[in-house]
Deep mutational scan, measured.
Amino acid sequence: MDETGKELVLALYDYQEKSPREVTMKKGDILTLLNSTNKDWWKVEVKITVNGKTYERQGAVPAAYVKKL
């Protein structure tokens, strides 16, 4: 869990989004888990830093590609 009490997951593999509802992640990324009720796809929040600014993006990733921490 992070400092706000939200559950975290670890990306076990790289994943490139294939639709606007998904998010890209790299192996080793730590993501915030938002919903894991679907056994195949979990909704997560990814933090992306671009030019020193951090953005948050929500989307789905394959459940088999992440592990709860």
Rank of each mutant, 00 (worst) to 15 (best):
M1F: 13
M1P: 13
D2Q: 14
D2P: 13
D2T: 13
D2N: 14
E3L: 13
T4F: 12
T4I: 12
K6A: 10
K6Y: 12
E7N: 10
L8S: 07
L8C: 15
V9Q: 01
L10C: 12
L10D: 01
A11G: 03
A11Y: 04
A11W: 04
L12Q: 02
L12R: 03
L12E: 02
L12T: 02
Y13L: 09
D14V: 06
D14M: 05
Y15N: 01
Y15M: 01
Y15Q: 02
Q16L: 11
E17W: 06
E17P: 14
K18I: 05
K18S: 09
S19L: 06
S19V: 03
P20D: 12
P20N: 10
R21Y: 14
E22N: 04
E22F: 06
E22C: 07
V23A: 05
M25C: 06
M25Y: 02
K27D: 01
K27T: 05
K27I: 05
G28I: 03
G28T: 02
D29K: 02
I30H: 03
I30W: 04
I30L: 07
I30G: 00
T32Y: 09
L33Y: 01
L34W: 04
L34A: 02
L34C: 07
L34I: 14
N35M: 07
N35H: 07
N35D: 15
N35R: 07
S36A: 11
S36Q: 10
T37K: 10
N38Q: 09
D40R: 12
D40F: 15
D40P: 01
W41P: 00
W41E: 02
W41M: 06
W42R: 00
K43Y: 15
E45K: 11
E45F: 06
V46T: 11
K47N: 08
K47D: 03
K47C: 13
K47E: 07
K47Q: 11
I48C: 13
I48S: 06
I48W: 13
I48R: 07
T49S: 10
N51M: 09
G52C: 08
G52A: 05
K53N: 11
T54V: 12
Y55S: 08
Y55C: 10
E56D: 11
E56A: 15
R57Y: 07
R57N: 03
R57C: 08
R57T: 05
R57H: 06
R57K: 13
Q58C: 11
Q58M: 08
G59C: 06
G59I: 08
V61E: 00
P62N: 04
P62T: 04
A63E: 02
A63L: 01
A63I: 03
A64Y: 09
Y65F: 12
Y65S: 08
V66L: 15
V66P: 04
K67E: 11
K67S: 09
K67M: 14
K68I: 13
K68G: 05
K68M: 09
L69C: 14
L69N: 00
L69H: 03
L69E: 01
